[in-house]
Design a protein around this nucleic acid. Structure first.
Lengths: 336, 336
DNA sequence: CCTGGTGTTGTTAACGTTAACAACACCATA
DNA sequence: TATGGTGTTGTTAACGTTAACAACACCAGG
């Protein structure tokens, strides 16, 4: 509750001198500095970041806007971002768009009023371009994470989903699978497009015909994994392996299969993307390519700060982080 | 970049009139209101929350300070808090103390400068009392989540860990286990104390002698689950069941056991606390009591807002949310 | 003794917003 | 026609901080 003026009065100096002590700017006699510090401590003084931001036009606030905090990929990413931001004296606001364009818009509006210094965003989909253009118009630097958005250039940190998809398919095919279902994700999301593309390319490369009755759309949520299995069960042929759009769809699918009495992985191999938190360490069901989520966050902040401070390259930078192949059935790990 | 003054000029009114339109306070002629709104849109005007906060002494910012964002319990809790905060027009800042008192202190300092309206905190332990007293001294309302702190009174949302522990023990004992190990958590954390207490009481109630060689300390982290198993293996007797301090310790223990060739759950039953995200849906290894994490967050925000607005009771309120017993081995769910 | 630099401190105004009050027009009523 | 209420708008000052500049003391060098 004490202000810089209270401190100044107590230390018998002007507020400006106190400000200099706080910020380490200008020169202050050692004796005066001591008096000021003493006064600050006695009054339990904390500078007001908002007032400071008002005059400095800089809030030291970043925002990380994600599509789903409860997804382990994003929580780990968030940790990376948080650590890196704090290390550089920035605070980090979290937002959750829930894969929903409208919620994303609400957050962007809020950010414009909060006057954040920069934004890390995992876009909800291609239509997010509106929001990105809005940020750009207001001169708020941003870094795109995980999903690229056609039509906008910016700094971005992406995974290689095409390669990831191919790795999983090669693995399945190598294991002898020829009838592989693909539960693909929403096509307005770049990761889902690339993963589907990888599926088709791998089939082609291995001379396996594309069978549209094995290919089913999902929405990246657990429930759509259930539905996909129901649909699949009514079709012919029934596959021996599944490439799932993402981790949640994979879980949903496995759960539905188990309910129907299938043994996993004996009667059905399941491969998918992104890790699933601590439990996956000991899970024998899944083969997956994971992404270095922590690095997504920490490098994202790094790129963003470079842009904010004008350090680093003037060009837009795209960093592609390599997928890591993990077969939980054999505990085999390989980097690419 | 446009300010309220730019809008005022464009709409040919005073800034105050614009302010009235924005906030819906006072009276403004319909025709004027239209002109103002038009001007705001043309200029892409967004009010500056910081400037507003400065004069209103209210930031509409809350903070949720947790011990570990990557723990599914807290991410779900975070979702509950976020949804509830947004519903009431509040923004939510997230913080991660990493079970570390110093990091917690840094966050509290930061919050005092950020002038948040209120704080939700899952304390790192009993020593957090310093930080809570600091908040209180600065008149920042707070709600304690998950772990109580002896010596401080406040609004709080807690689980019933004593009951939870008993439920798990009853279950194990009912299944015929007599030699049950306890991997207990840090004793400066209330949840760990209560869980250990439940262990001892259940033994007593069932006439099973307490054997200190079956009781091992952990630090709530995955690795300490490993170490605990190593220690256990060198001791006599070897248990047939384990009560693990929390979800991560349980995973660590299971992993270590599997490496040693143990079949889970045939050769060892494992019971623990809190859910583990989507994967646990299909995990056959664990028996656990989970807590309604989403409600922790959403009710916490509710309590906090009541306190901030002065609505609700003057008395400190403690809400104890009941544990839910889940046996993933049988998919049995029971509420208590 | 003057000059000019250096070190130290203070003054003023501004950042964008809103609270409190003032002012004025308009209308109905006595 | 005077009175007073109501509806609408504007003016001033304040929130807590810092940038830009001003001011002054002190000392070395000519």
């Amino acid at each position: 509750m004490a202000t810089i003026i209270d401190v100044a009065r107590k230390a018998q100096v002007s507020p400006m001198t106190v400000s200099r002590v706080i910020n380490g700017t200008g020169t202050v006699k050692e004796e005066t500095r001591k008096r000021v510090i003493e006064a600050m401590e006695e009054l339990h003084y904390y500078p007001d970041y908002n007032a400071r931001g008002l005059v400095k036009k800089k809030t030291n606030l970043l925002c990380l806007l994600m599509t789903d905090i409860t997804n382990p990929f994003f929580t780990t990413l968030a940790r990376g971002a948080e650590d890196q931001a704090n290390r550089h004296g920035y605070r980090l606001l979290f937002g959750n768009s829930d894969e929903c364009l409208d919620k994303e818009k609400d957050y962007v509006d809020m950010l414009l009023s909060t006057k954040v210094d920069g934004v890390l965003i995992a876009p909800s989909g291609d239509d997010s371009i509106k929001h990105l253009q809005m940020l750009r118009k207001h001169n708020i630097p941003f870094v795109i994470l995980d999903r690229y958005v056609p039509g906008i250039r910016s700094d971005q940190i992406l995974g290689d989903n095409l390669l990831g998809s191919r790795l999983l398919m090669e693995h399945l095919i190598q294991q002898g699978h020829r009838s592989i279902a693909c539960l693909f994700g929403p096509q307005h999301i770049s990761t889902a497009r690339d993963r589907l593309k990888g599926y088709r390319e791998s089939l082609l490369l291995n001379g396996i015909p594309y069978d549209s009755s094995l290919v089913i759309e999902t929405d990246y949520r657990l429930e759509s994994g259930h539905f996909a299995i129901e649909t699949l069960l009514n079709r012919d042929p029934f596959p021996s392996a599944i490439l799932a759009a993402n981790n949640l769809v994979a879980i949903g699918a496995i759960q539905a299969l188990q309910r129907r009495g299938f043994n996993i992985p004996e009667q059905m191999s399941v491969a998918t993307f992104d890790d699933l938190g601590p439990l996956s360490i000991l899970h024998p069901f899944l083969t997956l390519v994971s992404q270095p989520a922590y690095d997504f966050g920490s490098m994202g902040v790094q790129l963003l700060l470079d842009r904010i401070h004008g350090t680093g390259s003037k060009e837009w930078r795209t960093i592609v982080l390599p997928p890591q192949f993990i077969d939980h059935q054999t505990s085999e790990k390989r980097g690419y």
